[in-house]
């Protein structure tokens, strides 16, 4: 895999999409399709979660199968905050990021000492631990999850209005994508990509590899926590299902469909997968069979994901 370099059309294209999205809620209301505002918000939130995994997996080269833990923790922190009377997102969201990031730091510190198959299994096991912790904790709703009695606010604006929630999600996604785009090109992004390519060589150049990996892992966890907090607001529930390892698998699938290590890989993947789900599920209740076959097809025939199919100048060795 080569180092990330944005295609020339990427920035204007992203900007155009952003403008179109700004108009989306208004258009949906005109055509009386308000349901799809919620759906679009869901896509944005999963785009954020998948992008955070892409930072860890695509840029950092760490195949983590425990990312849902950070996502879910974010959701639970939001729900606990809301129940505890902290309803301002400007306070609760950073808190969700902080808790998820700290936990990621802990998991990373233990698991990043291992490699390969071991690392995958350990991240998975720790995520499962969080899942069991939450479903057996009656104070946090156990199996049923923890509901939010009401959506939170963001900078004083109530998120109860679907449109406001949509714009907040869009704003946060845009901000994070901007950060990730800058980061990929800055020293840190260079460093983690180089570590992904050749860890020993970086060590031999004097880089404390473990530390960079750990920070990347924790940063990814924190961003996933933010996505979780948003999702809890959208659905009104911090559900243990968010913590399940199959959720980690779904995020992984999104990143791979979208293109591992491409800035917008997570966004594209979330959009494609959620659209497929939304429309195929209606036709064929067992659509997971189709999805599964599709994924095996991707592995065998298009290992670099969908985004790579549109990329001309990343064919370097």
């Amino acid at each position: 895999m080569a180092f990330y370099r944005p295609a020339r059309w990427q920035k204007p294209f992203a900007f155009t999409v952003l403008c179109a999205l700004l108009a989306l809620p208004g258009l949906m209301e005109i055509f009386d399709q308000s349901y799809y505002i919620g759906f679009a918000t869901r896509v944005l939130i999963f785009a954020l979660a998948a992008s955070s995994l892409n930072l860890v997996l695509g840029f950092g080269g760490m195949v983590s199968l425990g990312h849902a833990a950070f996502f879910g923790i974010g959701a639970y922190v939001a729900a606990i905050c809301q129940q505890g009377g902290i309803v301002e997102g400007l306070l609760a969201f950073p808190l969700a990021m902080g808790v998820a990031g700290l936990f990621a730091l802990l998991v990373g510190a233990l698991s990043l000492r291992t490699r390969g198959v071991y690392f995958i299994m350990i991240t998975l096991a720790f995520a499962q631990m969080v899942y069991y912790l939450f479903i057996s904790a009656r104070a946090w709703g156990g199996d049923d999850g923890l509901p939010l009695s009401e959506r939170m606010q963001f900078a004083g604006l109530s998120l109860t209005d679907d449109k406001v929630l949509f714009y907040v999600a869009l704003g946060l996604l845009t901000a994070i994508m901007l950060l990730l785009g800058r980061l990929a090109d800055a020293r840190f992004g260079r460093t983690i990509q180089a570590i992904r390519e050749n860890e020993t060589r970086m060590e031999a150049l004097g880089y404390p590899v473990f530390r960079y990996r750990l920070v990347c892992f924790a940063l990814g966890g924190a961003i996933a926590g933010l996505a979780g907090a948003l999702l809890a607001n959208l659905t009104g529930l911090a559900s243990p299902a968010l913590l399940q390892w199959t959720q980690s698998g779904t995020l992984l699938v999104m990143v791979i469909i979208g293109g591992v290590g491409y800035l917008y890989g997570g966004v594209v993947g979330a959009l494609v997968l959620l659209l497929l789900e939304e429309f195929l599920l209606g036709f064929f209740a067992h659509w997971h069979i189709v999805l599964g076959l599709l994924l095996i097809g991707i592995v065998l025939f298009a290992p670099k994901g969908v985004a790579a199919l549109f990329d001309k100048h990343r064919s370097q060795p």
């Binding site: 992984l252 997971h288 069979i289 599709l294 991707i298 290992p303």
Partner: peptide, 30 residues
């Protein structure tokens, strides 16, 4: 399937075997 996967990277193995889970669960349900 697996014969093709041994020489692939871990990410491909994760994806393909995760896909198998989806297929297996749905097929059993079917």
């Amino acid at each position: 399937l697996f014969r093709q996967l041994y020489r692939r990277d871990h990410l491909s193995q994760v994806l393909a075997t995760f896909a198998l889970i989806l297929i297996a669960n749905e097929t059993v349900r079917l």
